[in-house]
Design a protein around this nucleic acid. Structure first.
Lengths: 349, 349
DNA sequence: ATGAAAGCGCTAACAT
DNA sequence: ATGTTAGCGCTTTCAT
């Protein structure tokens, strides 16, 4: 029906208001000395024509683009999405827009995207990933600052923001200890993942601090429900007296919970359960709802973006790794204390 | 350590090569008539200095920006992410970059983002959402084409691309019929969701085509595992002879599968199970792995982006709703035929 | 108080 | 074959 509307230039606004382009610019930006009447005339013309100043042209002049690139290697997955939201939070306020690109884990594609972003004169780049495995940087000597979020660069002069997996593991175990558990097992992902090792390490540390032995070896396996089912079987056979299990992911915890139920162990009465990730659809779907460790992914994104803004603003370039604390989300799977039936019944005062 | 490198302009390249700016431009773009030697000199200078043509300046001249905006109301969630990947696929090839913005379901924020995108002179906008509920459009008479993907505008003159929920429901039921099931129940999400109603309608249609009655009423409820557990209980009580259950989502299917197991029904031997969404972590974690309907979200994104490109290229503006077919992903939860033990054992020829 | 002109980085048309 | 110039949309001196 209606014709495709065209973008309106300041030239057209000036013409409509019967003033020069320069005057129109001043009126629109509240700069310079103008008669009130002129200013109003320009404003109303701009309003009427639906004028929107061209950010690109403004930037060309200012030598800025007010854009940053977001390169993700997680196919916009589970982990990088909340990070992105945090990034958007921190940048959106500063009128900075975000170009998104996904690498599909392909280094060629990644390089391609970086080139494209630089050609667009982004003022900085954020690289996000899945889990926190170190990865080669996207390049050295780039003309803009780069921050890695939820992934780390193998180059130590780069700057990375990742969750505090060590602290997260400790958080989980201290929570279990606080609810009266003493025989705590750990089922987690593959040993080759730094995240798995760090969480296990944090858990072990918290147990040691309490002067307690772990319930058996750490069971490294896969990041899957299936492994959770198997791992729980192995653990129950080796340590029948286990009264709590800390899992390296919510998916693993789901598998563990299934096996526990099938072996007739009640959660949390007989065995308490803690996951990791706070992946809500999984954690809330668990029976009972799963206590878990949240990595504060949004905060990681905000922190990363904040640092990028600093760097863009000329702050000395940071390097190394910054960790963001995790947060425990208590739910029913750790309610109560087996040594204290009153607490175990919950709720009633 | 190293100083922040600066972006290199064509002026610097020209100076380094000892030619004029115009000559440098020609050399770099392979235009005009130049001596081979000159061209080589410019190229090598550009190479050495790390010159990247400023896309914005090029665009300023061409009157284009080679960018589109992606507005999502799904917090980059489950559904919009694969759509985004499809969009990136289709646009990336055309050297078009994507600005991403998330509305957090806040109309004010949304309007804000749209304004910002228009000020950046994006050449088009894609709006993605969660599920396919109709929603008010982002504005009328906008200066650029808009396409809705995985959501639809209430304005019929807008153009939307959504999955064929009706066909998806039929697909699921026809698959169950093909494996020999005849008493098929349906547990799904809230009746207020068009997607739930359409899937149920498609399922009912396929049953009718086969001349079979449904196993009981459609059970509308919530999009949750918990409802899946309850729904299965209700269904088993009302229709003890049910031999297959089609679920409106994989989450619901997970809940249904739990109840089935607890009631001693084997999957797929006693009851076959089909989900919807193909949310892999859930579907693969199910025991046994879940047959489900995939909405081809990536394809939806590609189709939407393709249409946007057409519109940007000047094609007459499309309107109405385009549906993309769903695809059945067969897994263990529907393996075999209860009336045919040979087929039930699977694999062996 | 308003207008004219330069310039941001680049390309295309025209001049040499 | 190479150089010069105008201009994309805008802001900012500097004249008037």
């Amino acid at each position: 029906m209606s014709e495709q509307a065209r973008a309106v230039t300041i030239r057209e606004v000036a013409a409509a208001a019967g003033v020069s382009i320069g005057t129109a610019s001043k009126a629109l930006n509240g700069r310079g000395k103008l008669r009130e009447e002129t200013r109003a005339r320009v404003m109303s013309a701009a309003e009427r024509l639906g004028f929107r100043p061209n950010t690109l042209a403004q930037g060309l002049l200012a030598g800025r683009t007010y854009t940053v690139g977001l390169v993700t290697c997680d196919s916009f997955g589970r982990f990088s999405i909340p990070v992105m939201l945090g990034v958007e939070d921190a940048l959106g306020a500063g009128q900075i827009s975000v170009f998104m690109c996904d690498t599909r884990d392909d280094p060629i594609r990644e390089q391609h995207h970086v080139e494209r972003l630089l050609a667009r004169r982004v003022e900085g780049i954020i690289v996000t990933g899945r889990r926190t495995e170190p990865r080669p940087g996207i390049g050295t000597g780039l003309p803009v600052p780069v921050v890695y979020a939820m992934t780390q660069s193998t180059d130590e002069s780069d700057f990375s923001v990742i969750p505090d997996d060590l602290g997260g593991g400790a958080l989980a175990v201290r929570h279990l200890l606080a609810t009266g558990r003493t025989r705590i097992g750990h089922v987690t992902g593959p040993r080759r993942f730094e995240a798995a090792r760090r969480r296990a390490e944090g858990a072990a540390g918290a147990l040691a601090d309490a002067g307690l032995p772990a319930a058996g070896e750490v069971l490294f396996g896969e990041w899957s429900e299936e492994w959770g089912r198997q791992g729980a079987d192995i653990l129950l056979r080796a340590q029948p007296g286990v009264d709590a299990i800390f899992c390296g992911s919510d998916q693993i915890a789901r598998g563990v919970s299934e096996t526990l139920r099938e072996r007739g162990r009640r959660i949390p009465d007989d065995v308490a359960l803690v996951g990791f990730d706070n992946w809500e659809p999984l954690a809330m779907g668990c029976r009972p709802p799963l206590t878990t460790v949240d990595m504060n992914l949004g905060e990681i994104g905000r922190v990363a973006a904040g640092h990028l803004l600093q760097a863009i603003g000329g702050a000395p370039r940071a390097s190394g790794v910054l960790t963001v604390p995790c947060r425990l989300i208590p739910r029913e799977s750790t309610r109560g204390n087996p040594a204290d039936p009153a607490a175990a019944s919950g709720g009633t005062p």
